[in-house]
């Protein structure tokens, strides 16, 4: 893979992979990954005639790692992507996200309906579904509560990162995840994603109704995902006004782009650029 480039947006440096030519696809990784998550899809998409932009989201990989919790609200991170696309002169990219990157992609899609072409989301469903999680999903998400504690860093790290290893298991790039997290400031930065957005206080915050999603949307969920239940993705369709397609990948764990690399590449190539978006209602602009 070529060298990552660096772009300065929103007071942080974002490292990103930029390859290929054609319509732009933005690939957003999740926790605790980096753009490296997409190493199998990037060449396939480039081959398929796309320009691929895969950032290390703030707090991860080679990007800046501010240590304050407030630096990691979803809005801030969506703003990183918006600012990045504006600086790079990209008007209407396809947006693909996995895990936290999917949450960011959903939000980008409903906040920026005119700045997105197609939306593909892996593992994590629409935030609306998570507004009222089932007890079963709450139980599966127990670690999110644990990460809220300021003691979490110390507990995860001590005795050779033992608890971290037990929580993460032998999935995805588990070796590389740990190396990444051992970099200065990386663990706090990663946990801050949860602290800024998944605290009980955040759940209490008043939520406005979600604007609808007009982009054609592909949701992908894998049967061996232990942290995220199928309902999260399968029930997301009701928030999508554009064409909605749900794909369930058998025998793949949470890290679908790694566990089923060819399936994911094929689904993306078959989906991006094929469907027409639903037309948002056009209100006449008031002229002064």
């Amino acid at each position: 893979m070529t060298e990552k480039k660096i772009i300065h947006v929103n007071d942080v440096d974002i490292a990103y992979v930029d390859e290929g030519e054609g319509e732009t696809v933005i690939l957003l990784h999740g926790f605790p990954d980096s753009s490296y998550l997409w190493r199998h899809q990037i060449p396939a998409l480039v081959e398929g005639g796309f320009r691929v932009i895969a950032p290390d989201l703030r707090g991860f990989g080679d990007s800046s790692k501010p240590q304050e919790i407030e630096a990691y609200t979803m809005q801030t991170i969506v703003n990183d992507i918006v600012a990045m696309t504006i600086q790079l002169g990209i008007k209407r990219p396809h947006v693909v996200g996995h895990d936290w990157g999917a949450a960011i992609a959903w939000m980008y899609a409903f906040l920026m309906p005119r700045r997105i072409d197609h939306l593909a989301v892996l593992s994590v469903g629409h935030p609306g579904v998570f507004s009222y999680p089932t007890l079963e999903q709450r139980a599966a998400s127990w670690y999110m509560l644990f990460y809220q504690s300021p003691a979490a860093e110390e507990l995860l790290k001590r005795n050779g990162w033992r608890l971290w290893k037990e929580i993460m298991g032998r999935e995805g790039d588990y070796d590389r995840h740990l190396r990444d997290m051992a970099r200065p400031g990386a663990l706090t930065a990663g946990l801050n994603w949860y602290r800024a957005n998944r605290s009980p206080e955040a759940e209490l915050r008043h939520q406005r109704p979600f604007p609808p999603i007009y982009a054609p949307t592909l949701g992908i969920w894998s049967t061996e995902d232990k942290a995220l239940l199928e309902e999260g993705m399968a029930n997301s369709g009701k928030f999508v006004k554009g064409p909605w397609r749900y794909e369930r990948v058998e025998d793949a764990g949470h890290y679908i782009p790694l566990d089923a690399p060819e399936t994911v590449s094929k689904l993306l190539l078959g989906f991006l650029g094929t469907e027409q978006p639903a037309e948002p209602e056009r209100r006449p602009r008031r002229r002064l």
Binding site: K157, N159, G160, W161, R162, K165, D175, L178, R179, A182
Partner: peptide, 11 residues
């Protein structure tokens, strides 16, 4: 110390 944890040390 972190080289051990990140390098695969198991307690």
């Amino acid at each position: 110390y972190d080289c051990f944890g990140a390098g695969g040390a198991w307690e």
